[in-house]
């Protein structure tokens, strides 16, 4: 090798060292964190709502964060269990199913809506409807959300059973994927009744919905980390999420996720025990196995 060739080799090495020493270079080299989301809303809406959070976490963690929307609730649970996502956002019923199927996972933060750590499910009818009690829904059309959804299927299903109404006694029932479709389906007159979480009900109540029955309080949605994610990362993520409520930017981000969201708080697994009981009862009835 000539002296000139030695000189160029040294220069290239020095340049590479310089590039690697830059922060951006380090940000680019680390493996991105994947935030998985269950499809409780349309993908577009979900991207719109969660993109600021992804960006926020990336900045806080100094690690690129990408968003992955699962094709279904089950697929989402599978992805968490198989550690295909690093961070997962999921409802309380899937969390219960997740822990039953794959064991406990590190908890990052849970929703606090309107200052409450819990939320309720509502069985709705149209305002003009004559129905005043759940048993009157027999032989009627009923709209559910996703079969794995806490408030658009599992809890309302339990409420129907509690009042002696099985889906077989309904004239028709359909899973409309998300809460909004349920509200719109009832308002459009395509279904006599439907089930959804309380903040969706409040959103559509002015347009003509009326609450026929309201469930008890259940812990809200939450963020979890996969098993095996470094504790520092888990801690950093937890810290970043819990700190959202402390800044204006963070609060805007929170309301962007859900209008009623006031903070992300630290959850405990025990908070989901009452839901575990409900789901056990449903399972006993052959529902939500």
């Amino acid at each position: 090798m000539s002296r000139l060739g030695v000189f160029f080799s040294k220069a290239i090495c020095l340049f590479l060292v310089f590039c690697l020493s830059l922060p951006g270079a380090a940000f680019a080299q680390q493996a991105p964190l994947i935030l998985g989301i269950h499809p409780f809303l349309s993908s577009t809406e979900l991207y719109k709502r969660f993109s600021p959070l992804v960006e926020y976490l990336g900045k806080q963690m100094n690690v690129p964060v990408t968003l992955k929307i699962a094709s279904s609730y089950d697929a989402h649970l599978e992805a968490i269990g198989k550690q295909e996502v690093d961070i997962a956002f999921l409802g309380p019923a899937p969390y219960v199913k997740l822990t039953e199927r794959f064991g406990k996972v590190p908890l990052l933060a849970a929703y606090e809506t309107n200052g409450s750590r819990t939320f309720r499910g509502v069985i709705v009818v149209s305002r003009e409807s004559q129905f005043t009690a759940i048993p009157q829904l027999q032989g009627k059309r009923f709209a559910f959300g996703d079969p794995n959804s806490t408030m658009s299927h599992l809890v309302p299903r339990a409420m129907l059973l509690e009042k002696g109404v099985d889906v077989k006694q309904l004239a028709k029932y359909e899973f409309l994927t998300n809460h909004e479709n349920i509200a719109l389906g009832v308002l459009a007159g395509n279904f006599e009744a439907g089930a959804m979480k309380d903040d969706i009900f409040k959103q559509y109540e002015p347009q003509g919905l009326r609450a026929l029955a309201i469930s008890g309080s259940y812990p809200d949605h939450l963020f979890v980390a996969r098993l095996g994610l470094p504790a520092a990362t888990v801690h950093g993520l937890q810290k970043a999420l819990l700190a959202l409520k402390d800044s204006d930017e963070g609060r805007r981000l929170l309301t962007g996720l859900q209008k009623s969201l006031t903070a992300l708080v630290l959850p405990r697994d025990a908070d989901y025990d009452n839901l575990r009981s409900t789901m056990a009862a449903l399972a006993k009835a052959g529902i939500a196995q």
Binding site: S42, L176, T177, E180, N181, L184, G185, A188, N190
Partner: peptide, 10 residues
């Protein structure tokens, strides 16, 4: 047909 009203809205 799928009662996907949100999609219709969008």
């Amino acid at each position: 047909l799928k009662s996907d009203y949100v999609t219709v809205r969008t």
